[in-house]
Design a protein around this nucleic acid. Sequence first.
DNA 1: GGATATACGCTACGAGGCGTAGCGAAAGCT
DNA 2: AGCTTTCGCTACGCCTCGTAGCGTATATCC
Lengths: 214, 214
Amino acid sequence: MVSRMCRTTPRSGRTGRPRSAEADAAILEATRTALVDLGWSKLTMSDVALRAGVAKTTLYRRWANKSELVVDAVAVLFDELEISDRGSLAADVEGVVRQFAELLDRPEARTALMAVVAESTRDPALRTRIRRSIVDRQKRLVLLGRQRAQARGELPVEDAATASRTADLIFDVVAGAVVHRSLVSAEPVDTDWSRSFTLLLLGGLRGLDADRIA
Amino acid sequence: MVSRMCRTTPRSGRTGRPRSAEADAAILEATRTALVDLGWSKLTMSDVALRAGVAKTTLYRRWANKSELVVDAVAVLFDELEISDRGSLAADVEGVVRQFAELLDRPEARTALMAVVAESTRDPALRTRIRRSIVDRQKRLVLLGRQRAQARGELPVEDAATASRTADLIFDVVAGAVVHRSLVSAEPVDTDWSRSFTLLLLGGLRGLDADRIA
DNA sequence: GGATATACGCTACGAGGCGTAGCGAAAGCT
DNA sequence: AGCTTTCGCTACGCCTCGTAGCGTATATCC
């Protein structure tokens, strides 16, 4: 639960007045509500500072720009995702797909996510920040799901290298498809779609195994 | 090939001096090179006007804002995609995946695509513009690929409703996965990945059929 | 306690983008 | 011709960005 919050170096030296943790929390909260009210493009640093009851300079002491601030503000939302054991791999996948879709329905998430990814195409530092605080942390869902499925005998056990590549593939397919469905196609991720998608994914996984055996 | 280019109404009444087609082309071209040089966030209307050798006011007579201009400038890139007949469904899918990945490697495409999608989450007009000029036009690839595969006997023929839903699903999975792989995970869409992904997808499609029969 | 070091709130500022208004000139159409 | 619309140009008000400078507050170290 220790959110790393790797903002502008808070000076590892420990002398002087420490940064206010309340200010941190207020700023991130204000950023989220500003995202809801205004969206990414109309969100301004001055507005966030005003909402947080903090001076604008305080924001710039912690975050270099809007993108980095928003990544930190939104990252915590993704920690709510979890893959609960529903008895079968299909049910587990379907559950996490629905959860992810609900997350993307929240205005602060949908407006921020694509925007920071777009920004990251020209900002390597931002890209690694996104990976560390959002993307990589969600791979746990894939790993856990696979682990459970293997324990149930639904999926074969693979060597480490293959397992890693397969997990990456699954992650891109699941996250990509859900994001594309809800943000680009702008169609609902309802029960029907989730079920069809899960069927497609699991069938595909069996195909991968079959290919490996053959 | 008639690019609809539905910008600010060019006055369907036909009297008066017509808009310069050269200006149109110069502006869109300038927008693409500006995207390469500066990226989405640092691209300015003034800069595009300068590059195009056109007054800034001319831009605003045609496009309401940066997002709409960029959508039109980038849309033409997607028309280059084609699904050539490579003899098998697997080869066809793999080919279009690689093509799409190459497109997303171009700096003007990668920086623009996510940005306008992000913007569209708060701008319904922009969203429909994106759908019409980019997304929907690419579904032809899915439809054509399926058609060929059915002719080869690789895929069963379905009724119209099922076919439409399946096509949408495939589209979201393919486009979503490739975008996520290259822009979010920032990993290369190389031969290995394309092959694994195709295997997963085709295996999944067989699974969908099996489920429908059972 | 005092010295030091940092964070904070505040004000002010220059730089630069946005989008519009108003002008005279150009280029079509009837 | 006369009408209509576009074009290039200049100028403008509004807003945001990100920084500098100041006095004050709050920590740690001696």
